[in-house]
Design a protein around this nucleic acid. Structure first.
Lengths: 235, 235
DNA sequence: ACTCCCATGATTGTATACGATTGCGTATAC
DNA sequence: GTATACGCAATCGTATACAATCATGGGAGT
């Protein structure tokens, strides 16, 4: 997804951003946890400056939330609620719907290549889910790759930035209930296939609708599962 | 919209963000202009630290763009191009379409209040455009308020944040060609009215479609004007 | 005269230092 | 025993100092 191999030529704030985000996604920084710049800086073995920059970005993207009126604000990890999940999934569905629409408007040659590539990913996803011992991490990677590639394929910088900022937050929810979601992979793959079919046919409206339906269903599946809360992580 | 008349309890980075953004919107920092942290800090009479934080936020929102592979990156004001305008308007239309959809799903009482409030704004907008000496600033404010209030009305924090980050960038284009756009205000107001009618009727699909159409038409109007006036800063 | 190399300046990334504000604990007074 | 006030520790915002890297220009050599 991010694919940043190569440690030296990356500035500390990007790495801090990634690492803190991972801490949150993995649940090691549990929802509601108070965030102290100093502690994070110590944990990451860097100074407060890059941590601060990373935190500001995380705050703007909604990973951490600031309380306290303006001045002396305190940061904490954004809580995970059902309403938030619903809003999140709806927004992503809308954005990806737009991506699917644009994809269906590409020249037919590009469309064919794209559909072929995504069909490959989708097939791998199906196989992984149907295997005897499904690997949640690999399923996650394949699932994520499908959606990322779809947005990546159209040349739309702003949409790409938005999507890359928001979509991982859905995977935060997905991660928590990853085991419970494995059985639903087949449905998801089928929905993916529907999107691809409409893109292949060059039908923008249908492609958009299919993508939105996919995420709406994902929201439903998630809502059904949300019952027990994530436990606190120690780190 | 901004309306932060300088109470002391506002941190420097927020103020720096606002001021730099205003510089960009007003065109005093022209598209393509190279950005030097020190110069900005001197100009704003603060240190580099808050400027840096503000710049990072501006970069993430797409106001400034960073070039240079990873390491030693240089910032410059994002250029204004026709493709960018098109993408921007489409994205905003999609987001506001979602907002309109949700608005149409509100309890009918809330809907009535909302529609009434927005009708008021729309009427003021019409009057301003129809007056003998239209004030572009006031038209801008009213127009902006309409869209902001629509999104504000539904209780959707993430959508609100997204909208507040993206929409002002459309007004950057709008600002540049503000004079040329005045005659189009009547059309815009009519389209607004269509959105309100569908929200009032509680028809989510129609409301969403109307909002998207509004922004699609806005994109067309903008494209026509850019065509004749030329793009700024893409070179 | 042209080219190449080195040095100096400019610009950014990172760390640290300092002042201010806030929340909490404790001690004292009622 | 309880409540309030005072003080200290914790944390954050801002400034400044330092290091690293890149560009640019001038001088020397061919």
């Amino acid at each position: 997804m991010s694919g940043e191999r190569g440690l030296p030529p990356v500035d500390l704030v990007s790495r801090a951003y990634q690492r803190i985000r991972d801490l949150i996604v993995e649940g090691r920084l549990a929802p509601g946890t108070r965030i102290i710049e100093n502690d994070l800086a110590n944990h990451l073995e860097i100074s407060r400056t890059p941590v601060r920059a990373a935190l500001q970005r995380l705050q703007q993207e909604g990973w951490v939330i600031g309380s306290g009126t303006g001045k002396q604000l305190r940061l904490s990890v954004s809580p995970m609620t059902q309403e938030d999940a619903r809003e999140l999934f709806d927004i992503i569905g809308t954005l990806e719907g737009l991506a699917a629409r644009w994809a269906a408007l590409l020249p037919s040659e590009h469309r064919a290549d794209l559909v072929e590539e995504l069909r490959g990913l989708n097939r791998q996803l199906r196989e992984e889910a149907a295997s005897a011992l499904p690997d949640p991490r690999r399923a996650y990677e394949l699932h994520s790759a499908f959606h990322v590639q779809l947005v990546e394929a159209i040349h739309a910088p702003r949409l790409r930035v938005l999507h890359s900022a928001i979509k991982p937050q859905a995977y935060r929810y997905r991660q928590v209930y990853s085991v419970a979601l494995i059985p639903a992979t087949a449905e998801a793959a089928a929905e993916h296939e529907a999107v691809l079919r409409h893109i292949d046919a060059g039908d923008p409206a249908a492609a958009e609708q299919a993508a939105r339906t996919n995420w709406a269903n994902a929201a439903d599946r998630m809502a059904r599962i949300i019952q027990t809360w994530g436990e606190k992580g120690s780190w």
